[in-house]
């Protein structure tokens, strides 16, 4: 199978007054169609910088120094602004770390969908409404809430709206940067199961970025562990869980307080 996304020797520097700071050091990885790749690491390891660079959302002083990003064989780094605008959201979308704050507070939910839909092709208001209703129901929000403003929704609902927005144009890849960090565990679980259900239905790939490797192990197919701008280990989720090779991966696991009897007393519903 050919890769959906290929990253080859990507290096991202932050220009500073002194020597440039290399946030991402020549990393390479691939994402297959319909795959969830997890990228784990501590704050400052460069994982969010990777996400931003992939969508070419990085801004100065961040600078892609070398490397290649191929999306279905097309070179993303050479896209023109027009190509980029068409590519973002329709083929790759992103759910941000504070997705609940990434919605525009003075626009209704519907207007935010409408804006995005219009930017990607002609659409009538009625059609946009139908599409918004369909997407909101898909993530478990009653369609009539499209007339609400973001502050009238709970944090979990706003996160679902952000997810619905990211899915509306049926992208092939969704980059999720700490999508559930601000939510409590019950809501987090509900949203991630929604993501998995939608992936089965729609068949997109996900680059899932978080510092919570236990959570990542539950949903990713493969996991890459990042430290100081490098991927120190990459493997299948079960290998990273049961047989981590790199010392740093092992130290991440050791640092996690994990419920003592979690394994024997598995919750009734998770299989």
């Amino acid at each position: 199978m050919s890769d959906l996304l290929t990253v080859e020797g990507l290096r991202v520097d932050y220009l500073t007054a002194g020597a440039p700071f290399t946030a991402v050091r020549d990393i390479s990885f691939q994402i297959q169609p319909n795959e969830i790749l997890g990228l784990a690491g501590e704050s400052g390891c460069g994982k969010s910088t990777v996400a931003y660079a992939l969508m070419r959302l990085h801004k100065p002083p961040a600078l892609v120094r070398r490397g290649q990003i191929l999306f279905e064989g097309r070179d993303v780094l050479s896209f023109t602004d027009t190509q980029l605008r068409a590519w973002r959201w329709s083929e790759v979308s992103m759910v941000f770390q504070s997705a609940m704050n990434s919605l525009n507070p003075v626009m209704t939910i519907f207007r935010q969908f409408h804006d995005m839909l219009r930017a990607h092709g002609p659409i009538t208001r009625a059609d946009a409404m139908d599409r918004t209703a369909e997407m909101l129901e898909m993530v478990g929000i009653p369609a009539d809430r499209m007339q609400a403003h973001p502050h009238q929704l709970s944090g979990g609902m706003r996160q679902r709206v952000a997810l619905a927005l990211a899915l509306t144009l049926l992208p092939k890849l969704i980059i999720m940067d700490e999508p559930t960090t601000a939510l409590d565990v019950v809501v987090q679980r509900e949203i991630l199961q929604e993501v998995l259900r939608l992936r089965e239905k729609l068949g997109f790939s996900v680059l899932f970025i978080t510092h919570d490797i236990a959570l990542m192990a539950q949903i990713s197919d493969r996991i890459g562990i990042m430290r100081a701008g490098e991927i120190v280990e990459i493997g299948t989720a079960s290998q990273i869980v049961t047989a981590p090779v790199h010392d740093y991966t092992r130290s991440l696991w050791d640092a996690m307080p994990i419920l003592a009897n979690a394994a024997e007393k598995g919750p009734a519903h998770a299989v």
């Binding site: 991630l192 959570l215 979690a262 598995g266 919750p267």
Partner: peptide, 11 residues
């Protein structure tokens, strides 16, 4: 709901 690496979630 506590993430447990030994349990895979499905949709």
């Amino acid at each position: 709901a506590v993430p447990d690496p030994s349990i895979r979630l499905t949709g």
